[in-house]
Nucleic acid binder design. Structure first.
Lengths: 250, 250
DNA sequence: ACCTGAACACCGTTCAAGT
DNA sequence: ACCTGAACACCGTTCAAGT
């Protein structure tokens, strides 16, 4: 949590100021906490500097002294949420299973804060929590025997792959996280049904494959699809690790 | 190109109007073309309804009659660009290689219009070009022998995986596409070098793995990483297709 | 059937001025 | 060292009114 011993990377969009203790109203920490609270409850579109300031009982201009810009604030928000992820200690023979655990944990946190994937797009997370996170994931891959380059590339690819998945999963709705899983699942199923009906209604002459597969588009179990994804990824990476980049016979 | 025979999906954010032929100033097609031109030359941030209208010699309000909303416009832009992708006819024994070709082509188009990945986030592409695209990709997977569900799931996962990769690749800079590949590559390498130096400077006691891998972070050949990704993905999917979801021995 | 100007309700950020 | 009000230069969208 304490970012005292790690110097900020040179490209961080933050003003660096000395101390920051103060009585109550605002501090960098309080601003980040309020931003996350607002994001969790009202979604990404609700976060504006003006609205956030209002929530804190100040004017928008006051925030700029602490966080530099909205972009700088989002850097801090992202790092804070990355800090929620729990990564196990390396257990070498189980490295593939642990890699899947990392992926599942990443997805879990992303679904808890559905806006976070979109914040992370185009941002290279290099805050203190992100660094600790990377350290622990890379330790698992190295312990599993992956050579240096493959460990780093595999790590980067795992993150982008999981993000690519969750961005679709959280994509359409900009609503807050909420415990209304039922609503969400129902709405998702309804959308899938609409897609199926629409696909089924296409002219079969031009869309023979699609119309034949229409029913499969109604089946949209994200959990199952995610399991498939990390199976594919972990298997593929492990095969690569043993030099087996051979094409599987068909 | 002609979207006449395919009815629009019910959730499309567009006003449906009768004919649209007119002399010159604006039409749906002209608006979309102007939007893509603006996006290509000045990037996603430059596209506003007001700015686009100015480019077309009208006021912003005039655009709304044709495209309904900015969101509707982005739907059209996305479908137009998806239409640029070329998908080969199925060649069953080569399905894995063809799958990789699809991935490479998708990435190629995405890099040609670096903003398009971010437009596609949270959007389920269901325009006429997207449908034709899906039809052709799914035909390849079915011809390769994948069962219906695995074909659909594999297709969806491939798209999200490639998008996850390219969103990182195009992420930080919101600049236009441009032929200044050299600049881009140079800037990218410089950023990678900064990351390496920063990582190398971390306390080795807390970051033993990261500091040891610092040099690998400077190596950021996106092409090589992408090839690794689609190898992993295609291999993993093929193994799954033959029921081989077994964990690779370590 | 199409286009328009003007307005509504917002944005992020800056900056001189305060304490 | 921190906070403020007011301003600058923007947004997407609506709507009554025009032709």
């Amino acid at each position: 949590m304490a970012d005292t011993e790690i110097p900020a990377p040179p490209w961080q969009r933050l003003p660096d100021r000395g101390s920051r203790r103060r009585r109550e109203p605002i501090s960098r920490e309080a601003i980040v906490a309020a931003a996350i609270k607002l994001l969790d409850s009202e979604g990404l579109a609700a976060l504006s500097m003006r609205r956030l300031a209002e929530e804190l009982g100040t004017g928008a201009a006051s925030l700029y002294w602490h966080v530099g810009s909205k972009d700088g604030l989002l850097d801090l928000v992202l790092d804070q949420i990355i800090g929620e992820g729990r990564i196990p200690d390396p257990d070498p023979p189980r490295w593939q299973e642990q890699l899947k655990e990392v992926a599942r944990e990443h997805r879990r946190v992303s679904l808890l804060h559905p806006y976070v994937v979109r914040i992370s797009l185009g941002r290279i997370p290099m805050g203190p929590n992100a660094l600790r996170y990377s350290e622990r994931v890379l330790a698992i891959l190295r312990a599993g025997g992956l050579p240096p380059r493959l460990a780093v590339q595999g790590y980067l690819l795992l993150m982008s792959t999981v993000n690519g998945f969750t961005v679709d999963e959280t994509g359409v709705d900009d609503e807050p996280a909420g415990d209304h899983r039922a609503d969400d699942a129902a709405g998702r199923q309804e959308a899938a049904n609409m897609a199926r009906d629409y696909i089924a209604s296409l002219p079969a002459g031009s869309f023979p494959t699609m119309t034949g597969l229409a029913d499969e588009f109604a089946f949209s179990d994200a959990d199952e699809r995610f399991d498939l994804l990390i199976d594919i990824f972990a298997d593929g990476l492990a095969r690569h690790a043993q030099g087996g980049s051979t094409t599987v016979r068909s």
